[in-house]
Nucleic acid binder design. Structure first.
Lengths: 142, 142
DNA sequence: TATTGTTATACTCTATAACTATA
DNA sequence: TATAGTTATAGAGTATAACAATA
């Protein structure tokens, strides 16, 4: 492998992130899947189907995931006002606290990784990722 | 969230990679865990303990993972010449072909993501990641 | 008819603890 | 004693298919 290339860079960065994420979840007594779910729900309540799509899992898989999180007191189910079939998933106070602590931990770890970069390099990195994300959204839309 | 920052950039990129990886694995009839294992083994045979460390799972978990991959004809176990306790995991021809096809697929998808960047930006991104990786290795060493 | 969520079922993935064979 | 790998066990995560309730 003479020239790593952008794909290998992304893969390597992802492996690091995966590891950071897994260890942080363990520190906060969360499974990686629950940690991911909490981070999404931190932005606000979601319906089951909506949350399943955001997590990229089947709705049937989400039922079990939500069951276990509910049993651990991280979230609650409630009825929707407008659609009697729908269920609204909302974080409990404990769930919000866990989401916040976990996110703070992970963010700190990941930000620390970029300490080796100059301010200029760090900005360039962030801009590059923003462009990639924007390009991907266009892809999905078009 | 007024200023995304480097942590959010890394998290976003990781989410994209996760999705690309999962869909590619599905296309190649591999589980994500098997795909990951094949990519590591593509570099050469490994002992169970060694492979478990590289995958960041317990050796007991690797036994089942290797069992299923062996059953699917992706790898073989063989005895080590120097240590009669050790087992050497080697890809079969089918395993090498699957690893190669999967890696090619994922690399293509990820490289395409960076098409929205200029050559200069892409180089800056790769250099940044290389620096982050180097910093992390120093961390682990020191 | 289509959609929302659950249940039923069957795997895969994972960790912990206990075990064996070897070093 | 320590290490390499397996087995036993238990639980989490996931998908597919079938279902009830509601739209």
């Amino acid at each position: 492998m003479p020239d790593p290339g952008p794909a290998d860079a992304i893969i390597a960065l992802s492996a690091i992130t995966r590891s950071v994420f897994a260890r942080a979840a363990e520190r906060h007594s969360l499974t990686p899947a629950h940690a991911r779910m909490l981070c999404i729900l931190a932005a606000g309540p979601r319906r089951m189907t909506e949350l399943a799509a955001l997590m990229d899992v089947e709705k049937a898989a989400l039922t079990g995931l939500a069951d276990r999180a509910e049993r651990r007191g991280l979230l609650t189910r409630s009825a929707s006002d407008t659609d009697r079939r729908a269920v609204l998933i909302t974080l409990t106070q404990a769930g919000r606290a866990a989401a916040s602590a976990f996110h703070h931990d992970v963010s700190g770890q990941l930000t620390a990784l970029t300490d080796v970069l100059s301010d200029q390099e760090r900005d360039a990195f962030c801009r590059g990722v923003a462009r990639i994300r924007a390009g991907r959204r266009d892809d999905a839309a078009g």
